[in-house]
């Protein structure tokens, strides 16, 4: 790669960051990335309500988590099965509902029917089954 070729993407990235920085409320509504707990999967996720990206869920209102899952070891690998759940570790309980995970034609997934029934720290758990082991990915959503 030439020096010029390196600069162009860097500039594009900087412009992109500046653009996002101008609208911080939109940043959280965009895709975020997390790696599974044994490093086998990279997950991009965002929150949706009625198909619109949202920054945070609202208590007692249904929402959706949209997921893009890619293997970090073998790019061709796709999850055999995916489970999505959430619980409040400080309160020792989970949700009162069971979300439905739907695979879309573009390969992304949607966990529909999520509902946080109270404020506080929630942990989202995504369990990815590769047919041999079931590996967990998790992140926190603070809803105060």
């Amino acid at each position: 790669m030439t020096a010029r070729a390196k600069i162009v993407p860097a500039l594009a990235l900087a412009l992109c960051v500046m653009s996002l920085g101008a609208q911080p409320q939109d940043l959280a509504a965009h895709w975020q990335t997390v790696t599974s707990n044994d490093g086998s999967w990279r997950i991009e996720w965002r929150l949706l309500r009625d198909s619109d990206p949202i920054q945070l869920p609202e208590a007692r209102k249904r929402f959706t988590i949209e997921l893009k899952i890619a293997s970090t070891r073998t790019p061709a690998d796709v999850p055999f099965a995916v489970g999505v759940d959430a619980h409040m570790p400080e309160h020792h309980h989970g949700m009162n509902v069971a979300p439905t995970v739907i695979r879309r034609s573009d390969g992304s997934l949607r966990a529909e029917g999520m509902l946080f029934h109270m404020s506080g720290k929630w942990e989202v758990d995504v369990d990815i089954d590769d047919g041999t082991t079931i590996e967990r990915t998790q992140w926190d959503i603070g809803m105060y």
Partner: peptide, 13 residues
């Protein structure tokens, strides 16, 4: 919250 689950493997596998 010192511990987090990494993965499981069912006995039938």
């Amino acid at each position: 919250f010192m511990a987090k689950l990494v993965k499981t493997r069912p006995y039938d596998r």
